[in-house]
Nucleic acid binder design. Structure first.
Length: 734
DNA sequence: AAGTGAACTTAGGACGCGACCT
DNA sequence: AGGTCGCGTCCTAAGTTCACTT
């Protein structure tokens, strides 16, 4: 086990630190630094020889795998439970916040010793509730403002309903139609082509760029690039060497010969006036009057009307990204080797148009031509171009609420449901394969175990130096895991620490089976930190194998499957029909959160998080005082009823009772909100909701729980999932 | 069977706006 | 009336997968 441990991973985090937070940047950078350390050994890793070694003699016999393992059994020994571990993980890693806020928050959670125990909490909450409000709106205090516009509100409501109905009538119910033959995506496609950003406006004469203290009038191309840089001056990208060097190199390419001769050092450049002009423009935009804003809005609307839609098989469909990406400086994520490079302005000559032959072919802007017009109905894009920084293709495609996207989405979940019926067999198989004599099969088994249990991404190989150094399952390197035979009372713990997609850190400590642990030891034998953990495996081999087990099965299907099944199970466990609506929604969010944790969907904690938490706490405190007051008033009123036999007094008691009740409900709702927000600090729910959770699970849950769907899905999401909303009954089961 | 490119999904951050509060 | 805050939308980068080529 020769691992240059100390040299490769100089970690050991103070316990209060936030290992999973990505914002502090330090973690990210540290991890990036760490992983870029053995660049040399990484060079060797690119040349991957996929020989099939035998490992017969290297490994002692493993205990027999259980022949057939049910999901339930797995759950019992904690193997496939995402929720508990995941949540705990996040909590453990919560950054230290000031003790006072901590104390305050403790108060919110009064009476809940174990925050992780949802069942108990739900029970307690339930006890606290006096009565469930029937109609949320009805119990709102009637303010004078409300009274005034009551009729108007009614009218607006009615109008809304009508619009909704109208929209519903217009909706293309494509899911009720027959599918096209294989490969054909449309029969007719017509659109206006993409919308180009406005031309560059040269600087006014009073705004100057200075080199070595002297004003220099730049050529238009060089000036535009200079402005891109100046606009980012308040960002710390512009202080990074990689960014500056990339920018300067590309900028010089835009310069005239004379300019290139003169401007040889970025440090001698003074963008001050350009920067100030930019700041003023931003300021002016912020101060635009309401009327002007309205004008701009209407202009945008018009552009949207004209370019934002297409006709696809007789139906008007929204386009997702009809605007051509404006030029600027490339901002990759994380430690991107290409950050700062110039993203060029696209011309119609760069754009390929795709549409029906017999359609009205879009006109290129005056004086221009398209690169090409083609009529390929086996693809879904309307326009495409090659982007100059990475050299990859980009596309104009339809909005998520379109038939083309919806159908694909639906299909994705159907594939995941098919996995459900054979997942147990697949699991049993990869458990067997952990003992295979062939190294490649063993590695495949361990990789699959990770992908299934931890919802890791496949992990394609990436070209070094082209992108930030991030990995997925198959591209994990030895330096990304640490094996602990024993850790915190658990055996065979694997500690993961690597940067995944978008340079989001994945940090997790997971107990694994003995066989997996031993295999990992074997894989790491005689390797250095920068070497591939799975040197006999890649994603295409893995996916090839998976497809042979079930048509359509690839690594990412496991993510979809495990996400959706987790949601379904969590919803079943957490929610009760007897809960009131806020509680039900909290349960839903928690189920959603379990999935987000499983899939490692993180977000930067909102900048104003601490403040807004404190504000909410203050509101809760004042509400508590109000409640106490209301209670004592009620008591007083009750007393008076007894002494005086006045009928009026009874009414007063009733009134006070109602006040107390209302106070309690409001307090409860706020407390739930606080809990929800706190738990959500670093977790992004949107990604899983939009991409991994079969919407039919949520629709069925809403129907069963009698929760309005609007509480779960906003308008955009309801549009995207229209197919699911329409077809799902109460008894849907993923 | 490795390499490459096309096509499509998944991802987090920036930003603006409107709801809500003071 | 003015300020705050959270949500929704936009933006585009960064993945996965598959087909094709050599």
């Amino acid at each position: 086990m020769a691992r240059p441990r100390g040299s490769v991973r100089p970690r050991e985090r103070p316990s209060g630190d936030a290992p999973r937070s990505k914002k502090p940047g330090k973690d990210k950078e540290e991890a990036a630094r760490r992983s870029s350390k053995d660049k040399k050994s990484k060079a060797s890793r690119k040349v991957k020889t996929l020989k099939t070694e035998t490992c017969e003699n290297e490994m002692e016999d493993f205990a027999r795998a259980p022949g057939h393992v049910s999901v339930k059994a797995e759950t019992e020994d904690g193997d496939f439970v995402a929720e508990k571990k995941g949540r705990k993980r996040v909590r453990e890693n919560e950054p230290a916040c000031s003790t006072s806020t901590l104390k305050k928050r403790k108060k919110v959670k009064e009476g809940e010793e174990d925050v992780g125990d949802d069942g108990k909490r739900a029970e307690k909450m339930q006890k606290k509730i006096i009565k469930k409000p029937k109609e949320e709106k009805a119990e709102q205090p009637v303010s004078s403002k409300r009274k005034k516009t009551k009729e108007e509100i009614e009218a607006a409501k009615l109008l809304k309903m009508k619009m909704k109905e109208e929209e519903e009538k217009q909706r293309w119910r494509w899911w009720e139609e027959e599918k096209y033959e294989d490969g054909v995506k449309w029969k007719f496609l017509e659109h206006k082509g993409p919308y180009f950003p406005p031309e560059y406006q040269p600087l006014p004469d009073n705004i100057k760029f200075y080199y070595n203290g002297e004003a220099v009038k730049l050529s238009q191309a060089a000036e535009e690039a200079a402005l891109f840089f100046a606009q980012m001056l308040d960002h710390d990208y512009t202080t990074k060497d990689v960014f500056r060097n990339n920018f300067f190199r590309d900028w010089r390419k835009e310069m005239s010969l004379d300019e290139r001769m003169l401007i040889t050092d970025l440090n001698n450049c003074d963008f001050g006036e350009l920067f100030r002009m930019h700041r003023e423009k931003v300021e002016a935009r912020r101060n635009t009057s309401k009327e002007d804003k309205q004008v701009i809005k209407e202009a945008n609307q018009k552009i949207m009307e004209e370019y934002g839609y297409c006709m696809l098989d007789h139906h008007r469909e929204r386009i997702g990204n009809f605007k051509i990406e404006p030029p600027g400086l490339f901002r990759g994520r994380g430690d991107h080797p290409k950050q700062g490079m110039l993203k060029k302005r696209l011309q119609p000559e760069d754009i390929i148009i795709n549409c029906s032959k017999e359609s009205q072919i879009p006109e290129p802007p005056a004086g221009h031509k398209w690169k090409e017009v083609r009529h390929d109905n086996t693809v879904t894009w309307l326009a495409s171009w090659t982007e100059n920084v990475q050299g990859s293709c980009k596309y104009v495609m339809l909005n998520a609420n379109s038939k083309l996207k919806g159908e694909k989405d639906w299909e994705k979940y159907e594939v995941a449901r098919r996995l459900k019926v054979c997942v147990q067999q697949i699991r049993a198989q990869y458990k067997q394969d952990l003992k295979s004599k062939q190294m490649s099969i063993r590695q495949r088994a361990v990789a699959l175990y990770f992908i299934d249990k931890l919802a890791l991404r496949a992990g394609n190989e990436k070209e070094e130096g082209e992108t930030a150094d991030t990995v997925g399952c198959c591209s994990l390197r030895v330096e990304h895991i640490v094996l602990h035979p024993e850790l915190d009372g658990e055996h065979n713990v694997v500690e993961f620490d690597f940067l995944g997609k978008d340079c989001i850190r994945y940090y997790n400590k997971v107990p694994v089976t003995k066989k997996v642990f031993k295999n990992l030891k074997l894989f790491m034998n005689n390797k250095e930190g920068g070497d591939d953990l799975f040197d006999c495996l890649n994603t295409s081999m893995l996916n090839k194998y998976l497809t042979s087990l079930m048509p359509g099965l690839t690594a990412k299907v496991f993510r979809t499957y495990n996400a959706s099944i987790t949601l379904q199970e969590q919803l079943k466990d957490l929610s009760n029909m007897s809960d009131n609506q806020p509680e039900k929604l909290l349960s839903y969010n928690r189920a959603n959160r379990a999935v987000a944790v499983l899939c490692n969907h993180q977000r930067a904690p909102p900048k104003t998080f601490e403040q807004s938490m404190a504000n909410l706490q203050a509101k809760i405190d004042s509400r508590k005082e109000q409640l106490a007051l209301a209670k004592s008033e009620l008591k007083q009123a009750k007393k008076e009823v007894k002494t005086s036999s006045d009928g009026k007094q009874q009414a007063v008691v009733e009134k006070k009772k109602k006040a107390v009740q209302r106070c309690e409900e409001q307090l409860l709702r706020m407390e739930i909100q606080a809990t929800d927000r706190e738990e959500n600090k670093q977790i992004a729910l949107g990604t899983s909701k939009l991409n991994y959770l079969d919407p039919r699970i949520s629709v069925a849950w809403c129907k069963n729980m009698e929760v309005p769907l609007e509480k779960i899905y906003n308008k955009t999401q309801r549009d995207k999932f229209a197919w699911a909303i329409d077809m799902t009954d109460l008894d849907f089961f993923f």
